[in-house]
Design a binder for these strands. Structure first.
Lengths: 123, 123
DNA sequence: AGCAAAAATTGGAATTATTCTAAATCTATT
DNA sequence: AATAGATTTAGAATAATTCCAATTTTTGCT
């Protein structure tokens, strides 16, 4: 675990957003810890391989990185906003329904956020 | 709905695989219905917008396209193989747990397929 | 059928996130 | 301070997808 990987891990763990590689790169720059974008990617892929961070891939957007505390994601169908949600022991309940050995899962709930709902009501 | 979009929809609906844009392009060529790759992408994005096909995005692979009959996906952690699985009324059960209005969801179960399990046992 | 307007298709260039590469720099150990 | 090993770097390369402007096909109208 390199010094830079540590900084990056700290940034991800202390952010409540879901940051892109670029955002992390800029964040380091702001804090006068500038590194090359390639280093950000290197560190992210190391951290991901080690299971220390989660990678969220969304259609047509750059990947985002997230802490590993168990939670799921919701994406607003209208504006694309990404939010967190926590579902009680879904792995267990999925496991009950199947024979296969489930290692983990990746769930994205598609919904319409309050802001977009409000806009729709007005229209 | 253009002629080409119809062909493409038929190909997707009658395939049990999850085809990439490229594979569809080649498939049309084989059937002497060759079109430009751009047309394949145009048609796919039309079909997707209309909700006639589903798009599966997997980390580091080109997008794949699938029919819309409700089912979920499993990805083998070792070999990346993508398979189908059907879970009973998961939308309903997710809905019970949340206040938000769920339009749909996208679930990928990460598991280890039988082939890879067998290989592991041998080793 | 003949023609104009609209729609669809095309090939190729452009885009963009990410990975690769080979050189440069840093770190630690003797 | 010399060496080896790891890390970082800048920029080139890659690859899926989108964009674009030109051409072709289809459509609707008379």
């Amino acid at each position: 675990m390199t010094k830079n990987a540590k900084y990056i891990l700290k940034i991800i763990n202390s952010s409540s957003d879901h940051l892109t590689a670029e955002q992390i790169y800029l964040c380091l720059k702001e804090r006068n810890k500038a590194v090359a974008l390639a280093t950000v990617y290197n560190s992210l892929s190391f951290l991901h391989k080690e299971g220390l961070i989660k990678k969220i891939s969304i259609e047509g957007c750059p990947d985002r990185y997230d802490n590993t505390k168990r939670h799921d994601h919701m994406i607003c169908k209208k504006c694309g906003k990404l939010s967190d949600i926590t579902l009680e022991n879904l792995t267990g309940r999925l496991q009950e329904q199947t024979d296969i050995y489930i290692i983990s899962y990746d769930l994205k709930i598609i919904y319409i956020c309050d802001d977009c709902l409000a806009k729709e009501d007005k229209a």
